[in-house]
Amino acid sequence: MPPKRLVQDVRTRWNSTYYMMESLIAQKRALCAYSAEHDLPATLCARQWGLLEKIVAALAPFEELTREVSSSWSSASDVIPIVCVLKRVLSRRNESDEGIRTMKITLLEAVNRRFKDVESEPLYAVATLLDPRYKDRYFTSVEISNQAKAALIVEVRKMEEVFKRSTSDSSEPAEGTSCESAAVEPASKTPRMETASHSRLESIFDEILKESSVEPAPQLTTSSACIEVQTYLSEPTIQRSDNPLLYWQVNQPRLPTLVCTAAKFLCAPSTSVESERLFSTASIIIDERRSRLTAEKAEMLIFLKKNLPLMLK
C-alpha cells in the first residue's frame, strides 16, 4: 500500500476531528494488521470501529454544508435552506442509528437553539426569497414566509423610489442606481455549480421542494413592486446547480426592480470565512523581509491575488 499519514485533529476546528476519524476508517485494514503484530498500548475493538463509522456518517452533512457556506461563492441566501436540510437529516430515525441516537438528538437540539431566529432575520429571509433556486420553499411556516414576503415588498418599493428619483433628477440615471450597474455579470459556470451537482444532500433539497406547495397570495394592491414579487414567486424554482446571478441577468428586462434588490442582497456572504482568508492573504504578501513594499503596491497585489482567478475564468 502507498504510505499515508494519519490526520491529526485541532481543537479549534471541529471538522479536523471529522477528517481524523475519516482517515482512521480509511486506514482500518492497515491499523488492524499492525496492531495484531505489535503490542500497542490501546486499540479499537469491532464495536468501537462500528461506532466510529456511524459517527462519521452522522457528521458528514455538517462537513459538506460547512464547506458550502465557507466557500467564496456562498451567499446569505444559502443559510435558511441549509439549516432546513440539516434539521431534516438529523430528525430522521433509522435502524443504523443504534449507538448514536443520543448524539443525533443532541446535535438537533443544538441546531434548533443556535438557528431558532435565522428565518426572522430580514437579511437571510429576503436573500432566500430573491434566490431563484429557493424562493419561499424552505420556510418552516406560512406565517414566517408571509413576513419575509412583506419585508421583500418593502425593499422593492424602496429600490423603486430610489430609481424613480434618480431618473427624475436628470435624464441620465445616477451612477450606481440603475439596474444595469447594480446587476452582476456572472460567468456561465461557477465553482459553486460544479460542486452542488455532486452534493450527497441534493435529494433532501429536492424532497423539500416537492413537499412545498405554492399557494398564490391574494393580490391586495396593483403596485408594480407587488406585481413583480408575485409574478416571480409564482414561477417554479430553477435547478440548484444553476447560477442565480445568470437568472437575474436574463430576467432583467422583465423584473427590473427585483434585479436591483437581488443585486443588493445576494452579494452578502453567508459567513466571515472569506474575509478571514483575505487577511491571511495580506499576512502572506506583507512580510518583514519586504520592507520597501508600499501600502499602494500591497493593495494591488492583494486585489490581483483575489480577483485574477475570476477574471481568467
Score class of each variant (00 low, 15 high):
K4H: 14
K4F: 15
L6A: 04
R11Y: 10
R11W: 04
T12L: 00
Y18H: 09
Q27P: 07
A30H: 10
C32G: 09
C32R: 06
S35T: 09
E37N: 14
T43Y: 03
C45P: 02
A46Y: 08
L52R: 01
K54C: 04
A60I: 03
P61I: 08
F62Y: 10
F62C: 12
L65M: 15
E68F: 15
S70E: 15
W73D: 15
S77C: 02
D78W: 12
V83H: 00
C84N: 11
L86V: 06
K87G: 01
R92Q: 08
R92P: 00
G99S: 06
R101D: 09
T102R: 13
T102E: 12
V118R: 04
E119L: 02
E119G: 03
T128A: 12
T128H: 02
L129P: 03
D136N: 14
E143Q: 13
I144S: 09
I144M: 13
L152S: 00
R157S: 06
E161T: 11
T167R: 07
S168R: 14
S168T: 05
D169M: 15
S170P: 11
T177M: 15
S178D: 13
E185W: 07
S188R: 13
T190H: 08
E194T: 05
I208V: 10
E211A: 11
P216D: 08
P218I: 00
Q219D: 09
L220Q: 15
S224D: 01
C226K: 11
E228Y: 00
L233S: 10
L233C: 07
P236H: 05
R240F: 08
R240C: 10
D242F: 13
N243V: 06
P244M: 10
P244W: 10
Q249W: 11
Q249D: 03
V250M: 12
P253Y: 00
L255T: 01
P256E: 01
A262D: 05
K264C: 02
A268C: 13
P269C: 03
V273L: 00
V273G: 00
E276L: 06
L278E: 11
I285T: 04
E288S: 13
L293M: 15
M311C: 11
K313E: 09
